[in-house]
């Protein structure tokens, strides 16, 4: 009988105990796989701090049960290309787009999606595409300026 669940996380197969099938993906990534870049903010899908890419599309890992994404490619901030992260950090520093940094991993994952050509119909502005990522201290102006420069 199967005792392990094999996930594909950041390009590599990762085994987790079968008991994690019904746990939130957020908990599996943080508690079992030690990927602490995935943050828990609200736990209700409002704040976007737990954003990960599922087959290249951003989703809230607090609203996904682990078993649901068994066959998907899961990407957390830890799995984003180093060159992208270097550029993202440099631009954030330049525009002052990070203060406490708690919302930043979710924003970085969204930025990677945007960078890879992700958008919605009608070429939405960044402020609209990032409406699901809340920030409580830096200020949206700086974040939007940085993301515009990155795009």
């Amino acid at each position: 009988m199967k005792t392990q669940l094999t996930l594909r996380v950041n390009g590599a197969p990762r085994d987790v105990p079968l008991s994690f099938v019904g746990r939130r993906l957020l908990d599996t990534l943080r508690l079992e796989l030690g990927l602490m870049g995935v943050k828990e903010g609200c736990g209700e899908g409002d704040c976007g701090a737990c954003t990960v890419l599922i087959d290249g599309e951003p989703m809230c890992s607090c609203l996904l049960l682990t078993g649901v994404v068994e066959k998907c490619e899961i990407t957390t901030i830890e799995g984003l290309p180093a060159a992208f992260l270097t550029r993202f950090s440099a631009i954030c520093a330049e525009y002052g787009a990070v203060q406490c940094g708690y919302c930043t991993p979710g924003i970085a994952v969204m930025a990677a999606w945007l960078h890879a050509g992700g958008t919605e119909l009608g070429d939405q502005p960044i402020s609209k595409l990032f409406a699901g990522n809340l920030c409580r201290c830096t200020g949206y102006q700086q974040i939007i300026e940085a993301l515009t420069a990155l795009r």
Binding site: G45, T51, P58, C60, A131, G132
Partner: peptide, 8 residues
């Protein structure tokens, strides 16, 4: 919701 929520 948001981009993330609409994907789910």
């Amino acid at each position: 919701g948001s981009v993330q929520l609409r994907n789910q």
